[in-house]
């Protein structure tokens, strides 16, 4: 009986020691995992912040892309619509010019165009071309320019004249078409401002 008691006591002691060691291991494991977890939290927070900030950056980028391209698309459509309107105004204005009645003012205009052209070419010894409608007006004015001749060939234009030296080396285009063409960018601007653009 005595030996059994001693045996049981030894077994109990061993069990107790084992239990203590297991508990302590569990405890230290728990503390260790707690520590690892604690350490991981700032890292996790950092990662979380990075993911959020990257996501925000990406979202900003996409937003910028969408807004940028739709703004541009809208603006380009507006530009095309404006150009169509400007073209219509141009066509109407050109129609009006071609249908206008030739008054004294028009004769004065041709006179100033002749003056300007001969001055630029530096000679009155020139051949003048005009359209069939303006032939008489030009012919009447040419007497004031010694050496100037009216060509029998007519040109297709709204009005005005082209002047070239008799050796054909110099030519000056002073038709209304050429003048409108030269001034077109400014006229476009003027028309656009009537539509409230470019002010």
């Amino acid at each position: 009986m005595v030996s059994n008691f001693a045996l049981e006591e030894t077994i109990d002691k061993i069990l107790h020691n084992n239990e203590k060691s297991v508990l302590s291991n569990i405890q230290s494991g728990f503390i260790e995992s707690q520590k690892t977890l604690d350490n991981a939290i700032p890292k996790l927070e950092q990662e979380f912040d990075k993911i959020i900030s990257d996501g925000k950056k990406e979202a900003d980028k996409i937003e910028k892309q969408i807004i940028g391209s739709s703004d541009l698309e809208a603006r380009n459509k507006q530009l095309l619509a404006l150009e169509i309107a400007i073209d219509k105004v141009f066509t109407k204005a050109i129609d009006q010019i071609s249908n206008m009645t030739k008054s004294d003012d028009y004769s004065n205009l041709i006179k100033s165009l002749l003056e300007e052209s001969t001055q630029i070419l530096g000679t009155t010894n020139v051949i003048v071309n005009t359209n069939s409608k303006d032939k008489t007006i030009v012919q009447n004015l040419l007497s004031k320019y010694p050496g100037a001749e009216l060509s029998s060939d007519t040109i297709d234009c709204l009005g005005g004249i082209t002047v070239k030296s008799k050796d054909s080396t110099m030519k000056f285009d002073n038709t209304l078409d050429a003048r409108i063409q030269r001034m077109k960018p400014l006229i476009r601007k003027e028309i656009a401002s009537q539509f409230g653009v470019g002010n």
Binding site: I120, M170, K171
Partner: peptide
């Protein structure tokens, strides 16, 4: 910008 154009020379 002016409406006045330039002279065209054809002697190259």
């Amino acid at each position: 910008m002016t409406s006045q154009g330039g002279v065209q020379y054809s002697k190259i």
